[in-house]
């Protein structure tokens, strides 16, 4: 039987954008997306898509990508489809704007996963590069009562079990869990595949399923916020850098050594 895989993916501000373009509106406590820099699929979530597609390369599987937000750039969010995912489900509603509150986001995603009939395996990025919360996948696993393995760099499915190489500070451990399970993955999984021309063509033809808050029939008690954002600001560094300049690069290196010695750092 085909393995039914769900991937959770978030649309985020491009984290590789120039730092100078990063701006906060102090009144609304929001990051202002720069007008000329398109959003991207969160990098770790692309790793999650790749992990799912690797499983699909080796056995019969379907890959459904699920995302929640208020407004989507469709061409961006279709990237997983053009990489080879089968379906895209977008939970889109103005009510879904509070993404700093992982509790609310996990409730939404769990409701959608239930509506989709559940999955054998859910794969997620370890964290989103905007709020860096690293909580939503763990919350989804808790709400749905699934076994959960975090920080994977290799994910295999065999005989009703998932086998994950999980990163630990000085290496990795191999962890197994029976399905259904949820796994988070990190960039150590390797470069996600590029969309193929055929993939792009297929993705253009595919229509995402779009669900609003009403479609998900959420209970009001689930949507009480758990986190309040009190302030949001750009930290200032008062570090003054002393540039060491010798006659040439090698001389600068030598002078740097002298400086460090003088300061008794070495």
């Amino acid at each position: 039987m085909a393995v039914k895989i769900g991937v959770l993916a978030k649309q985020v501000l491009d984290p590789e954008m120039p730092m100078a373009a990063f701006r906060i509106d102090g009144d609304t406590k929001k990051v202002v997306p720069p007008p000329n820099i398109p959003p991207v699929v969160n990098g770790f979530d692309e790793n999650a898509v790749e992990a799912a597609l690797k499983i699909k390369d080796g056995q019969e599987a379907t890959v459904t990508v699920i995302s929640t937000g208020t407004a989507f750039a469709l061409d961006v969010m279709k990237k997983p489809l053009s990489m080879g995912a089968d379906e895209l489900v977008l939970l889109q509603d103005d009510a879904f704007q509070n993404t700093i509150d992982s509790f609310l986001t996990a409730q939404l995603l769990a409701a959608a996963i239930r509506k989709l009939g559940g999955f054998d395996l859910i794969i997620c990025g370890r964290q989103a590069s905007d709020w860096d919360n690293a909580q939503v996948p763990l919350g989804v696993a808790e709400i749905l009562g699934m076994a959960c393995i975090s920080l994977g760099k290799k994910v295999d499915v065999q005989d009703g079990k998932v086998r994950v190489e999980r990163i630990i500070p000085d290496g990795y451990e191999v962890v197994e869990a029976p399905l259904p399970a949820l796994v988070t993955v990190s960039n150590e999984l390797g470069q996600p595949r590029y969309p193929t021309l055929r993939g792009i063509m297929a993705a253009t033809r595919k229509k995402p399923t779009i669900w609003s808050a009403a479609d998900l029939g959420l209970d009001a008690s689930d949507s009480a916020p758990r986190i309040t954002l009190r302030d949001l600001f750009v930290p200032v560094s008062d570090q003054e850098c002393e540039i060491i300049e010798g006659e040439d690069a090698a001389d600068s290196g030598r002078l740097l050594a002298l400086k460090l010695r003088e300061d008794k750092i070495i």
Binding site: F22, I24, V31, I100, W131, A224, P225, R226, I227, T228, L229, R230, D231, L232, F233, V234, P235
Partner: peptide, 8 residues
């Protein structure tokens, strides 16, 4: 950025 948050 730095966010200051509290739990409700």
């Amino acid at each position: 950025a730095i966010a200051v948050v509290s739990c409700d």
